[in-house]
Design a protein around this nucleic acid. Structure first.
Lengths: 295, 295
DNA sequence: GCAGTTCTGAAAATTTCTCTTCATTCTGCG
DNA sequence: CGCAGAATGAAGAGAAATTTTCAGAACTGC
């Protein structure tokens, strides 16, 4: 056992750079369901990772173990420590932190939020919203509040790659009138409005709706005033053991929507992404100049 | 496998009366440290209980298993269920959608990412990073790439409320030199660099480090080139059933850090937040003007 | 492209594990 | 005490796992 690493996972990570392709594939698989993954025989672990047994044997030796049996016995000991420690039972996510550590409390809260949000979420709302966002005849606009503008931006950045006609509206409401002016009947406005609802956001929604704009709203369970103007509403749980609300589940919904839209019309998207790739490549060349100056 | 018993321990207990002296001694030993005791080979378990290997072989057959391997594999499965998080076992999150619906697949992937990230995360890294970010003597700078700049912005927006001397650096690298110029020894640079690592980011890190700037890096498990310059590294799992990587867990870490920093020096933070509240109130009044115009 | 190197898995060699046989030991009872 | 019957473990046969070898594949640098 290497003296530098305390656990097997440490050993794997510290030497990850030295591993070969097949070995990394194996290492990833082991870490994926750690430490249970190492329970079975060398054959089982190899098959599970889609590599040959010699690869496993070689890697564990590379990691500093005498052989697979020693590797496995280490794993057994770690497992034993995790299991026999009563706190370790279920409620510990970060293995080397107490159950009350902020990381563990946060993890509990977020999974609860995710579970509750999803069990409340109407699949039809999701499908319909995805279909709207995927409709290339409609322009899409994104707007968020002080905190949520980062989410709007994240959503926008991805959608911009996937399809044309996407616009990010600044959080600063003074720019809103001209945006509304540009919108056409049937266009889609994605609004993020979460606790500390901003009154102007409701006004924006009202005005937009009366111009025939379709509104998709991301909000919390208490419901923003925008709700009455929105066609599709995502009510997300945002409670966290923190002075702040959590945006993790909101981001989850955003990412799921991105994937839904993307897979909807993969062919169209693909070509667009390739073209963009090239452009990014070129702009990277541009930027290399700047970085010369930076040095 | 006996149909009556759900678990191995059940099987042992229901047939305990039929066991012989040596078998009971063995059974007791197995139950004593269940289910970890059955991790090793039949030889190990026999020695541990002070009986011979045939005794073990006979007993497991008596209990209804075909042989020791079957017995052991049952034990492994039980262990696996105990270890892995019960919430993650839900095969359906969104109740009215099939298990293969994108929402459910995403939820599975994200909880797996969360679990793996947290079990790999060194608590000390977390504490140390939080302490750095909470140190009001140091200026904090945030920078992200094309996708991750939204995360940097989210982090920045919160930290800005919590403490002074926070700066968001534009993704556009042409602005970087002047920022580096402004930084002082001991200042903190939070870098988001995830897959599709950007070379200039590594250059920025290198330059910053040589000026005595402390770097905190949020990256994926493959490791960005920035890693060699960073003092604290958060390796986050980002795999999702999508053409895109998931930033959900990264955002989780960010929020946990925000809360850790905030609770660190709550008194100082509180006063600052109150002052800010007032300012926001006033600016809201400003904005009401705009919205009058909007109508 | 090509030579040299590294990586990889099939297969054989080796070790270890599991199970069965069988002789020995133990237990209960007349 | 001695015997029948069950229980136990030593030893070996057989099975499975682990390691090593080696030849082909993949990659790298020129």
């Amino acid at each position: 056992m290497p003296t530098t690493a305390r656990t097997v996972s440490d050993a794997i990570r510290t030497r990850y750079d030295d591993l070969t392709r097949a070995e990394r594939q194996l290492a990833d698989r082991i870490l994926e369901n750690y430490p249970v993954s190492g329970l079975g025989s060398i054959t089982a672990i190899a098959e599970n990772a889609g590599v040959s047994t010699p690869t496993v044997a070689r890697m564990v030796q590379k990691l500093g173990f005498k052989g697979y049996p020693e590797f496995q016995s280490r794993l057994h000991h770690e497992l034993e420590e995790t299991i026999s420690n009563p706190i370790a039972k279920h409620d510990r996510w970060a293995l080397n932190a107490p159950g009350t550590h902020i990381l563990n409390r946060f993890a509990d809260a977020i999974t609860a939020n995710l579970r509750e949000t999803l069990s409340d979420l109407d699949t039809k709302t999701f499908e319909d919203a995805a279909a709207l966002l995927g409709d290339r005849d409609r322009s899409i606009y994104f707007v968020g509040g002080r905190i949520t503008c980062a989410l709007a931006e994240y959503f926008f950045t991805h959608m911009q790659v996937i399809r044309p006609k996407t616009t990010l509206i600044s959080t600063n409401s003074s720019s809103w009138p001209q945006h509304v002016l540009n919108m056409n009947r049937g266009d889609v406005l994605v609004i993020f409005d979460i606790r500390r609802y901003e009154q102007e956001m409701a006004t924006l929604a009202e005005v937009a709706k009366s111009s025939g704009i379709v509104i998709i709203l991301m909000t919390d369970v208490w419901g923003s005033p925008v709700a009455q103007h929105a066609r599709h509403i995502f009510r997300v749980r945002i409670e966290a053991p923190s002075a702040w609300d959590s945006s993790v589940v909101t981001l989850f919904v955003v990412e799921a929507l991105i994937e839904a839209v993307q897979s909807c019309a993969w062919d169209k998207t693909r070509q667009r992404m390739n073209s963009l790739e090239e452009l990014f490549e070129r702009s990277r060349l541009f930027r290399r100049h700047n970085h010369q100056k930076l040095e």
